[in-house]
């Protein structure tokens, strides 16, 4: 029985058809003679609004963050006090910032370690031919649609020390909840935050994985079944390997999201208690609009960007490249 080999043999087929279809069209709709300038004009008209928006509101701010990071600037007056790398030294020497980077990375890896198996498990479960499958899928996605802030406010109530539901449930099973509450005990806050984030974002993983599972050809399942494979064997040897590209896409999105984490932290803890949950984003907002240290905020943004960029690049080179190659 070689379902695994079968799976890898089938995977590239759809992408090949795409390329082939594309190359035929190239012959048909290729540039007609004498329309080169016209086509160029059309392209410019089509892409200008998008590029202008991105240049103004994405690229320019990122560049000015980089510029800001080399000045000592309090947010008003001319930006003329050049300080070289000093802001970077200050940021990297600040325990609060290095702590924030660590919190971001803990969330990045905890998300992959916990949400991947959990999301995969739920997706496989919901992919079984059970009743109310559509309804279940909808329900699982509900937390994702709710605003992070709004979810945060509800969880804040749930996690209230003493009067909150969570403490009530813990007491009901005979345990003692932490005296300062889950959000007030520095050792527990980051873990609590992670649980809430998992609640919020697991639905996205499940939805993507279920979408990916839909594209596994049924013949493969049937063939494996005829060969006498059990449900679990089929999942492990066929479904999960074929989900590879989807899983890798999700991991990428999850990593980038974890690095930018802000809303939920701001609502639940504001980075506290005692900086136990600061993230890079809360740090830079705190330094920038909070305290007016715009140069330091700029340096923190650049470091955040470099970290995100390097991680994305490494991931692209070592993990995603395979997929994009197949897709082209």
């Amino acid at each position: 029985m070689t379902p695994e080999r079968g799976a890898t043999a089938v995977a590239p087929v759809p992408s090949e058809t795409v390329t082939r279809r594309e190359s035929t069209s190239r012959r048909v709709t290729g540039p007609r003679p004498g329309t080169g300038w016209r086509q160029r004009l059309e392209i410019v008209v089509f892409v200008t609004p998008a590029l202008a928006l991105m240049a103004t509101f994405v690229l320019w701010p990122v560049i000015s963050a980089a510029r800001m990071s080399f000045y000592s600037w309090r947010g008003f007056g001319p930006m003329d006090k050049f300080v070289g790398w000093r802001n970077y030294e200050l940021v990297l020497g600040d325990d609060v910032f290095t702590g924030a980077v660590m919190h971001n990375f803990i969330i990045v890896f905890a998300s992959l370690a916990v949400q991947l198996p959990l999301g995969l498990g739920i997706a496989l479960l919901l992919n079984r031919k059970i009743r109310f499958r559509g309804l279940l899928r909808t329900i699982v996605f509900v937390p994702y649609v709710v605003a992070e802030v709004i979810a945060g406010v509800v969880w804040f109530q749930l996690l209230q020390p003493e009067y909150g539901v969570i403490d009530g449930l813990i007491k009901a099973v005979g345990l003692t909840p932490p005296e300062q509450g889950f959000l007030g005990t520095p050792d527990l806050t980051l873990a609590t935050l992670f649980v809430v984030l998992t609640w919020k974002y697991l639905g996205m993983a499940v939805l993507l994985f279920m979408a990916g599972l839909q594209s596994v050809p049924d013949d493969l399942y049937e063939a494996a079944q005829i060969d006498g494979a059990s449900w679990w064997q089929v999942q492990r040897r066929i479904a999960i390997p074929m989900l590879g590209p989807t899983i890798r896409t999700w991991m990428f999105l999850s990593m980038i999201g974890s690095l930018q984490l802000f809303d939920m932290v701001w609502v639940l803890t504001h980075g506290g208690p005692a900086n136990a949950t600061t993230t890079m984003a809360t740090y830079l907002i705190n330094q920038g609009t909070g305290r007016g240290n715009y140069g330091i905020a700029g340096a923190a943004s650049v470091i955040l960007f470099v970290i995100a960029f390097v991680m994305a690049l490494v991931y692209q080179v070592f993990v995603l490249r395979r997929d994009t190659k197949e897709a082209r």
Binding site: F57, I256, M280, A281, I285, T289, A297, V302, L304, F305
Partner: peptide, 21 residues
């Protein structure tokens, strides 16, 4: 690729200059 790279720019990075802009 410009748009793909755009996915990588976390909004948080640009937020303070964006606010000033």
């Amino acid at each position: 690729m410009v748009f793909v790279l755009g996915l990588l720019f976390p909004a948080a990075v640009a937020i303070i200059p964006l606010f000033i802009l």
